[in-house]
Design a protein around this nucleic acid. Structure first.
Lengths: 219, 219
DNA sequence: CCAAAAGTGTTAGAGATACACCCATGA
DNA sequence: TCATGGGTGTATCTCTAACACTTTTGG
């Protein structure tokens, strides 16, 4: 199981961030326009070849930084695609990661005509089988929302429960009852009150929370 | 993202099957003894290099058949490991699948001194980081048991609910209430009564069931 | 005072769990 | 007939969803 193979290995990443759309936060992701064949001119997931001396995770992070200038709060392997007819002439095995970046960070994307954010609900035609890949990533994100606290990775250090709820609403695509959401989150113990209040709003000032310090479980 | 890389790609598989241990079914998996360096003589997961003209899934199935002679009822990608220091001198990316084989099939394993079944609870020291890999696979199996019907893949076409329950008990490592298990399974609609009864037992003959025909959702 | 969202209380329903009890068979 | 697991009934508990209601701010 150690023979060399004429197989190219690349790492790509599906990057999620929240951006305003129609006055409400909506799930977006950055794409890069391909500048060479195959699929020249099409939008694609940021990615590139695996360097011999870096781990898969490092490759994902490096590519992510190189193409978008972003530093993800969450980074996790999604799936490895390796169908024989995936596009180019030679055999390509593509290891896909998915990442979450903070809302405020998502606005600091590198300024490049070949990089742009798109709402997940309205993506352009993508190169290769990247449509399918994005679909998987969205599915995984929704699932993990239910039993982990990855949603914190999309918010700044301090946040209100309403902000956290809006994140969940944007990802799940449906409204959540504020009262029940509050109780459910507080019961999990994943958030802690900072003691501060958010002022400047024209209603009762909401309490600020932060993610409870705990051992991060890498997946 | 299409440059050739000096990286070897291999596919390995964690194969689960049920075998008797202390009169009760227990989760087992087959291992192969390494016949070359590195880790010569150690037990390892069956695997081998990816051939240029086969899909990842095909590679897993081929390797599985070649080393154990088995044909899995369930086969699913688990994770891709690619740390730089994973063992050999050269860089190796290892795509791991996990599989389930039927109990009756598991007894027909190829007769080879370098292939043997071990109970998951008492594995020998494994080559590379295969201990960790097996741990992940077990975790995934337990999780999927709750919300899919993969457990059927470990049983013959027709089975009693007691057999199905024993499968779950063996994997989860704890007893389940027969009455509640029955109702829960029947409520999901994943099983159908064949109309037959299992005779020869010295108590009320249990009804036979089969897995409800339905679109298989590949993961 | 009024609008708006924060935050609390309460009730009804669904699903899980524990366990009592009857049923059908082989020995 | 008895032991054994198959199979049914049922009370309890927990969790969730729905929604009424009180609180606290800015305008």
């Amino acid at each position: 199981m150690t023979e060399a193979q004429p197989v190219a290995v690349a790492v790509s990443t599906v990057i999620f961030g929240l951006r305003e759309a129609d006055g409400e936060p909506a799930l977006h992701l950055p794409l890069v326009r391909r500048v060479r064949e195959p699929h020249l001119g099409r939008w694609a997931l940021p990615g590139g070849p695996l360097a011999p001396e870096e781990s898969l995770r490092e490759a994902a992070r490096r590519n992510l930084a190189a193409t978008t200038g972003l530093d993800p709060r969450h980074l996790e392997q999604l799936y490895t695609f390796g169908a024989v007819d995936r596009g180019g002439a030679e055999r390509l095995v593509s290891i896909v990661y998915w990442a979450l970046v903070r809302t405020d960070e998502a606005d600091r994307t590198l300024d490049d005509v070949n990089v742009a954010w798109f709402p997940v609900e309205a993506l352009p035609p993508l190169a290769f089988d990247h449509d399918e890949v994005v679909g998987w990533a969205v599915k995984r994100l929704k699932a993990k929302l239910e039993y982990t606290r990855i949603s914190h990775a999309l918010l700044p250090e301090e946040f209100t429960l309403a902000q956290l709820r809006e994140v969940h609403e944007a990802i799940l695509g449906r409204r959540l009852d504020p009262a029940n959401f509050r109780r459910r989150v507080e019961a999990t113990g994943t958030v802690t009150r900072t003691g501060g209040l958010q002022s400047g709003v024209r209603h009762r000032p909401p309490a600020l929370y932060r993610s409870t310090a705990r051992q991060e479980l890498l997946t």
